[in-house]
């Protein structure tokens, strides 16, 4: 059984590449029981969304001349 440290590392990898079926299964099973890792998973997705939105914000910000 993978522990939280290993599961979250997999969750991070899963944000950037396709995981194997076994890995996805391990994550799914783990987060069913572990709310910390479940939070990490949804918050990682949220941070991605926020990062994209942040770039959008930069583009709309009034120009600051250096």
């Amino acid at each position: 059984m993978r522990n939280c440290r290993e599961i979250t590392a997999l969750v991070s990898q899963g944000m950037d590449k396709k995981l194997s079926f076994g890995e996805r299964l391990a994550i799914g099973f783990h987060v069913m029981m572990c709310s910390h890792c479940r939070n990490f998973q949804s918050q990682s997705q949220f941070m991605r969304k926020a990062a994209r939105r942040y770039t959008g914000q930069l583009q709309n910000r009034p120009d600051k001349k250096p």
Binding site: C4, R5, S35, H36, C37, F40, Q43
Partner: peptide
């Protein structure tokens, strides 16, 4: 973030 056994130190709370 993690203890030596791989469990969260103080894990993510729900937002």
């Amino acid at each position: 973030f993690f203890m030596s056994d791989g469990h969260w130190n103080s894990g993510p709370t729900s937002w």
